[in-house]
Design a protein around this nucleic acid. Sequence first.
DNA 1: TCATAATGTAAAACAAACTTTACATTATGG
DNA 2: CCATAATGTAAAGTTTGTTTTACATTATGA
Lengths: 66, 66
Amino acid sequence: MKNNIKVQRAIHNFTQQDLADKIGVSRQTINAMEKGKYVPSTALALKLSQLFKISVNEIFELEAED
Amino acid sequence: MKNNIKVQRAIHNFTQQDLADKIGVSRQTINAMEKGKYVPSTALALKLSQLFKISVNEIFELEAED
DNA sequence: TCATAATGTAAAACAAACTTTACATTATGG
DNA sequence: CCATAATGTAAAGTTTGTTTTACATTATGA
């Protein structure tokens, strides 16, 4: 699973902490997600989608191994 | 979190078992998802999105309590 | 109607997401 | 250069997704 959260965050000029607060998770969760350390829940994905005003499919992309 | 997996499954004429096999989860996972018993991972959501050829946002919808 | 497919459900176990705490490293502005 | 903000990372613990097994109920077709 790839994602472009870091880019979206840059576009919106949010720190990891900002984003964490806005969607209600810890900063480490944001960091780990950006680093591809795990795959978030669909609820989280939809919250990012709302915040960034782009679709979940535009944020996340499946890879071969998924 | 609402979803319309059951409807999509009907459109594509899949049983819960069919769908489970196609996306690589157990039938109970499909059943529980349809029943709203839990929120799947984004990986699962993307697989459903691919299979049904519609976006994740068209399958899943956040609700007030999420 | 009878056999069988499909669905609903539940409990126990396991895997993965997510939090908390804590510290180290890297940017950035004054 | 120095202070501080931002990011990276790690370990332990909690919560939640997911599997497995098992059985009960509801549809469906012959």
